[in-house]
Design a protein around this nucleic acid. Structure first.
Length: 643
RNA sequence: GCUGACUUAGCUCAGUUGGCAGAGCACUUCACUAGUAAUGAAGGGGUCGGAGGUUCGAAUCCUCUAGUCAGCACCA
């Protein structure tokens, strides 16, 4: 009985009798055997003692593989569980999990573990791994594990998903299960750090009790750990809240309202440019821009279903007396529907594209608020297209193309597509009409497949009125967030009884496509701030040229002349009139990340030139003002992109 | 909203056991009149998030409350 193992390079190795992953590694090379941490068998991560006895595709995972790192982290999490269990025998353990940036374990005990205890736990962990104890990989009867965890309801619950025999690992008296693979010995654990503690609902459900997560990270090499800790420290420098304050872009003052941002002149400038850009873009794409009221009769939101499905995210309605209630709008689909309904519509008009930069108010839960990323007042780049059924796919593709164009202009490259469906297990949250959900979800999927685009599918992420394509980006902290969205909606046209007159003279029901290109101005600008680290490209920079006269008395007039000429041409220029030295002002201009710093002294004044220092360089280019303005124009027109 | 930590000058932060509220930056004024990342000096600026309590005395201890931060839940 012989079998063959196919290695990643395509070569095959024949064996007569079963071999383990680590024996396979040894048969290839001693260095591989030394660095092996687990195996990947037909795409699944398996431990080193996993026995191979038939044809498989096998890769040896080492300390260089991301999955190898996950095995290390799982092992550290396992040892940490053993330590807290030893220290607090009464503690209950939840799930141990591995993430991109580290791992966590879940614990539950009366007196919660404090952040201040982390160094102590870290020491205990260090001690435990110092001499390299063996971790035993065993097959255990489910009943035996049930017994071991008889006082631990969380582990019991996890255990329920397993068969009669469970893959488990033992370290001394401690036993646990649920790992793809662990290292056979704690000796390889060298570099780790416990980072924080935080609450998290058991199994991610807010109706469940809250457990306490202990977060940590681990690496094979000290340099990697240090680089990671450094990266964590540097996150703050990219955080839009830090940059927003340092560059004086915006503020949120809890005393005047949590989640209600104030845009300072510089932030407002960036916002104004983006708003003009997006309106121009949309008009060019056939949208008709409108303005609609911030307040709306509550009845409209009852008809739309917002009041039934979205009430807890809405501000309380205002009682106007005599049975009239007004509501601060959380979304403006009903407003654009009013615009559609204002005239009788013909099939010849479709698609009808209505867009607006509209201010919305949503009563976000206090714990959700975060800088400009989550606010209670936001300006939505909202648009609704009304199409005939057979136009849906083309309009969808067209909308996505606009979004991609915009991303290209802003140099946004790090994102992914998510098809967001309703949660089939919790349909109460959504409009009840199974057929419409099936239909719209499959239409979205078909449209994406036709375009050949990759996407992930996520159940439970849909809007209450329909499924959507979300475009997901990451914040500086690494959290996922929705930036753009395209949503199919068969519901609201039904609810508001929208019609158009077809070629047959009969009334037909249009389909609505809701879409946000830059989503909200708040979140979009927060995102841009983070990806640009505050160094906005010239076309967006609040100040494009900072003018510094070498001597206030001698050069101020020339500086004003240069500034006025720049402003007259539509550029944004400022003079630093403060009574400070040149070096001081240069420094300020650089820390404020102004694209071009102009130094004007005798040389420039006499020659009628400007001395230009581009941001982030130490260049000093002397050029005529016309040359500089020409360069500036090109920079702005190209969105500061090379391609 | 939930768990935990935190809240002191515009910003970043000290403040010991409960005993006269501080520093740097920023701001104002004065001097210096500057050539590419911080000139020097002086000055102004605080109900120590808010309310209550303990105490001879509270930034410090206790209770409540608001907010911020991290995570969870929710979400653009």
């Amino acid at each position: 009985m012989s079998f063959a193992l196919t290695l990643p390079d395509g070569s095959k190795k024949e064996f007569e009798s079963a071999v383990t992953v680590s024996e396979l590694a040894s048969s290839i090379s001693t260095s591989l055997a030394k660095n092996a941490v687990a195996g990947k068998v037909d795409g699944e991560v398996k431990p080193l003692d996993f026995s191979l006895a038939e044809d498989h595709e096998v890769a040896i995972l080492t300390n260089k593989d991301a999955e190898g790192l996950s095995v290390l982290r799982a092992t550290v999490a396992f040892v940490l569980e053993a330590i807290v269990k030893e220290k607090y025998p009464e503690i209950k353990l939840g799930q141990a999990e591995i993430s991109e940036n580290g791992f966590f374990i879940e614990t539950d005990k009366e007196d919660q573990i404090k952040v201040t205890e982390l160094p102590e736990l870290e020491k205990a962990l260090q001690k435990a791994v110092k001499n390299g104890q063996a971790i035993e990989h065993v097959q255990v009867a489910k009943s035996e594990l049930a017994d071991a965890f008889k006082d631990d309801p969380y582990k019991q619950e996890l255990l329920a998903n397993y068969g009669e025999t469970v893959d488990a690992y033992k370290l001394g008296d401690f036993v646990d299960f649920g790992f793809d693979a662990l290292l056979p010995n704690t000796g390889k654990i060298k570099k780790f750090k416990l980072l924080s503690v935080a609450g998290a609902y058991w199994k991610g459900k807010s109706s469940n009790p809250m457990l306490q997560r202990i977060f940590g990270t681990a690496f094979f090499k000290e340099a990697d750990l240090e680089a990671d800790l450094k990266r964590r420290a540097e996150i703050k420098e990219r955080d839009h809240r830090t940059i927003g304050r340092d560059l004086d872009l915006f503020f949120v003052d809890p005393k005047v309202g949590a989640g209600l941002p104030y845009w300072m002149p510089k932030g407002a400038t960036i916002r104004r440019i983006i708003e003009r850009y997006i309106v121009d873009k949309e008009v060019a794409a056939g949208y008709q821009h409108v303005y609609t009221p911030v307040l709306m009769n509550l009845d409209a939101y009852k008809t739309s279903g917002h009041w039934a499905h979205y009430r807890e995210d809405m501000f309380p309605p205002m009682d106007m007396g005599e049975g009239e209630w007004l509501e601060l709008r959380p979304m403006n689909c009903p407003s654009h529907i009013q615009i559609y309904k204002h005239h009788i519509r013909s099939y010849r008009e479709l698609p009808i594209r209505i867009a607006e930069l509209g201010m919305m108010h949503r009563y976000e839960k206090s714990g959700a608020l975060s800088g400009l990323q989550r606010v209670r007042e936001m300006t939505l780049n909202d648009g609704h297209t009304f199409v005939a059924l057979d136009q849906v796919q083309e309009e969808f593709a067209r909308t996505l193309k606009i979004i991609m164009d915009v991303y290209h202009d802003f140099n946004i490259n790090d994102y992914y597509f998510r098809l967001s469906y309703r949660d089939p297990k919790n349909t109460d949250k959504y409009f009840a009409n199974d057929e419409m959900w099936e239909r719209s979800q499959s239409m979205l999927k078909a449209a994406m497949d036709d375009m050949g685009l990759d996407y992930v599918e996520a159940e439970g992420e849909a809007a209450f009125y329909g499924p959507k394509l979300d475009i997901q980006t990451k914040t500086a902290l690494g959290n996922d967030e929705t930036m753009s969205t395209i949503q199919l909606d068969f519901m609201l046209p039904e609810r508001f009884e929208l019609t158009y007159v077809g070629a047959d003279g009969e009334e037909h029901r249009p389909v609505m496509i809701h879409r946000g290109i830059v989503g909200t101005m708040e979140r979009f600008i927060a995102y841009l701030t983070e990806i640009y680290k505050g160094a906005f490209p010239t076309w967006l920079a609040p100040v494009q040229a900072e003018i510094i006269p070498v001597n206030l008395d001698a050069h101020s007039d020339y500086a004003k002349k240069v500034r006025d000429e720049l402003i007259a041409k539509g550029f944004r220029a400022e003079i630093d009139f403060r009574n400070e030295k040149l070096g001081y002002k240069i420094r300020e201009s650089q820390t404020q990340k102004v694209p071009y710093t102009l130094v004007l002294g005798d040389d420039e004044m006499n020659a009628g030139t400007v001395n230009v220092r581009p941001y982030g360089t130490e260049e000093q280019n002397s050029e005529s003002l016309d040359e500089f303005m020409d360069k500036l124009s090109k920079d702005v027109a190209s969105y500061s992109r090379e391609d």
